[in-house]
């Protein structure tokens, strides 16, 4: 890849955003993005993730006192057209008055690049995104997936210092999302570019992010590597927003957690734990003869091919979710004994 510009380090200092109508979209945020890193901002709609991206892009200015630094240089008041960042929008924002090639070459033409160089770069981008055949099509002749490829090619063509992606896959159907997610991952790794990716889809965040910033109500709930966020969520919100979380309520006494499903020996139990959380992969149906103090009844069982997803009633508000790889059928109402791996237990 012939990407000349070196990756950009981005820092946000005390960046808050209050909109004209008084809505507080973002609480003061301090955050540094390392050069070449892919950071995913993840959260439900209205959590402030898009506002953060738009502040980094230069489409919004932070409230007074906030600063945006690109490689240490203050760009807070620099409009987006002077920041040299590539941006991909959820609605693609492709220009209907230009062909595919015209769209991809636009940023270069604005920079007064010689025609021959524009042509060569456009051809390179078309090849990279595997859309060479579409070069002369109009935008209204493209499907959603094709449009997103054009949008990516257009953003990268100008060799931006950073690539900003605002829910780029949300408008696509599930199968296409998977394909494009893989392509984007490959692209980001091969470019080595600093990338900021906004999504509400936790699977996308886990797959693409070097680090994930989980946001809630304009605040950062947790920052960490995907594995940390998943296995060691900092708050109840993070735990339940990412992946599936099981919950048991009860009391702890002498290293044993007791609940309506039975009792669970847990050597490292904090004395005050009244609620424990764990992932579906940390609980399994016990083998016959195995010693365990927990049991429940099967409320529903879905055979998925490689595994069976069980919903087991244990007298809690919600049934436990168990991913079982056992080679057997489960029937509704069947009594099952359960084993939990204590290493997966969380108290929040």
């Amino acid at each position: 890849m012939t990407e000349a510009s070196k990756p950009l380090a981005i820092a946000l200092e005390n960046c808050a955003k209050t909109f004209a109508d008084g809505t507080k979209a973002l609480e003061p945020l301090d955050f540094a993005i390392e050069a070449g890193e892919t950071v995913v901002f993840l959260g439900p709609s209205g959590c402030g993730k898009t506002t953060t991206l738009r502040i980094i892009a230069g489409l919004e200015e932070p409230d007074a006192g906030g600063r945006v630094l690109f490689d240490g240089e203050d760009v807070t008041h620099l409009p987006i057209e002077q920041r040299n960042v590539g941006m991909v929008f959820q609605s693609y924002a492709l220009f209907p008055n230009m062909t595919v090639a015209g769209n991809i070459g636009y940023g270069l033409r604005i920079r007064k690049t010689p025609d021959a160089a524009v042509k060569a770069r456009v051809a390179e981008m078309l090849g990279m995104m595997q859309i060479t055949k579409l070069a002369d099509r109009r935008i209204d002749q493209l499907s959603g997936g094709q449009r997103q490829r054009v949008a990516l090619a257009r953003a990268i063509a100008v060799r931006p210092r950073a690539l900003l992606l605002d829910e780029p896959l949300t408008a696509l159907d599930a199968k296409l999302r998977d394909t494009l997610r893989l392509d984007i991952d490959k692209l980001l790794r091969s470019l080595g570019i600093t990338a900021i990716y906004v999504t509400h889809d936790q699977a996308e965040a886990m797959a693409l992010g070097d680090r994930i910033v989980v946001m809630e109500h304009g605040r950062v709930a947790q920052i960490g590597k995907p594995r940390e966020i998943y296995q060691r969520p900092a708050t109840r919100f993070v735990a339940e927003f990412i992946g599936t979380m099981n919950r048991l309520t009860g009391t702890t006494k002498d290293g044993v957690f007791a609940c309506s499903a039975g009792s669970l020996p847990w050597a490292g139990a904090p004395a005050t734990a009244t609620e424990i959380l764990f992932r579906p992969e940390d609980i399994r149906v016990a083998e016959s003869g195995e010693v365990t103090g927990l049991q429940g009844t099967v409320a529903a069982a879905f055979f998925l091919g490689d595994r069976t997803r069980l919903f087991v009633e244990v007298g809690e508000a919600r049934p436990l979710v168990i991913e079982s790889t056992a080679r057997r059928d489960f029937s509704h109402g069947e009594a099952v004994r359960l084993a939990i791996d204590p290493r997966g237990l969380l108290v929040l």
């Binding site: 892009a57 489409l59 960042v85 929008f89 220009f95 008055n97 636009y106 920079r111």
Partner: peptide, 26 residues
């Protein structure tokens, strides 16, 4: 969004008006 897209590619107000706004309200 169209204007934001053009701005992200480096187009200031007048180039945006000329290249994006006018052709699209033709």
């Amino acid at each position: 969004t169209l204007e934001e897209g053009a701005a992200s590619l480096g187009a200031g107000f007048w180039p945006r008006f000329r290249d994006i706004v006018l052709p699209n309200c033709r």
